[in-house]
């Protein structure tokens, strides 16, 4: 039954993709594959507020990492996909798949505003937690030419190694490269060096209330300092760049960015 459910959702995901990805489903209902009954659906939003320790994130601004190195960020992008919502009874609702490339440096008009992504097709109800994938799963990666946020034009796909879950580029005097840049475009979408990471958070005492015609926001803080620390301390001097190849280093860095994401609060 579990499996059946999953496939039905996948079908819904395909049907949903035919429309503009982020538009709310005009019908506002979907058929529950289990009961055959209509269920109401709405959108939820995920907001990613980027911070560096206690400071607000700004591009091309000096910050200090845990190795005492000064660095500036020019690019930070990552994929969010495979959203699941936890019900108060502990079970998970799998949301039809959508793929979002979150860009911490959004656009010229408003470089430092927090990006917000919309997740459609969320069944109405109260939820007590969320999980999502940083990266693109192997089924989607291997399913052919893509468009939208998965378009190879965006420079996140390397044919041999799939989609980069996360790309982090900037400058630092500590860098060993001649142009003083650091460049970590992480690769690896399958074992043994799978660098996509599942993030799971409980909302504590809050509940996310998904409803037709509403779009509650789950607010996350994404702490860039965590890229350089826990479980491993990364110094730019020792590691100024990564290779476009799934390997131990990429996998290790993915363990580090896993804890960049922290649940903050919900606006219902």
């Amino acid at each position: 039954m579990k499996k059946f459910l999953l496939y039905s959702w996948m079908f819904l995901a395909i049907a949903a993709c035919k429309k503009k990805a982020d538009e709310p489903n005009p019908a506002n209902t979907i058929i529950d594959p289990e009961t055959g009954q209509k269920i109401k659906i709405g959108n939820i939003k995920l907001e990613f507020e980027h911070v560096v320790g206690n400071a607000a994130f700004q591009i091309n601004t000096d910050f200090l990492n845990s190795s005492g190195e000064t660095f500036q960020v020019s690019t930070l992008r990552y994929y969010i996909s495979n959203v699941k919502l936890k019900k108060p009874d502990g079970s998970f609702t799998v949301i039809p798949k959508t793929y979002h490339l979150v860009n911490a440096v959004r656009n010229n008009a408003n470089l430092n505003a927090s990006p917000i992504i919309t997740i459609p097709n969320v069944p109405e109800g109260n939820y007590s937690g969320i999980s999502f994938l940083i990266g693109v799963d192997s089924v989607q990666t291997e399913s052919g030419a893509q468009t939208g946020d998965l378009s190879p034009d965006l420079g996140m796909l390397w044919v041999w190694e799939g989609y980069s879950p996360l790309e982090f580029i900037g400058k630092s005097a500590a860098s060993k490269s001649s142009d003083k840049s650091f460049s970590y475009q992480i690769f690896g979408y399958k074992e043994p060096y799978n660098a996509s990471q599942i993030i799971s958070c409980d909302f504590g005492t809050s509940l996310l209330m998904a409803k037709q015609n509403a779009a509650p926001i789950v607010h996350f803080k994404v702490d860039i300092l965590e890229f350089f620390q826990t479980p491993k301390t990364i110094s730019i001097a020792n590691l100024s760049s990564t290779v476009t190849k799934a390997n131990e280093t990429n996998k290790m860095l993915s363990e580090n960015y896993k804890d960049m994401f922290r649940f903050e609060h919900i606006h219902n």
Partner: peptide, 25 residues
């Protein structure tokens, strides 16, 4: 067998510096 789907295969020669040497954009 390093490329899992025929549709994305052409990106390999197009962007390979000893094959066609260009960039997708």
């Amino acid at each position: 067998g390093g490329i899992p789907n025929l549709e994305i295969q052409p990106l390999a020669p197009i962007e390979n510096h000893v094959e066609m040497g260009d960039k997708l954009p």
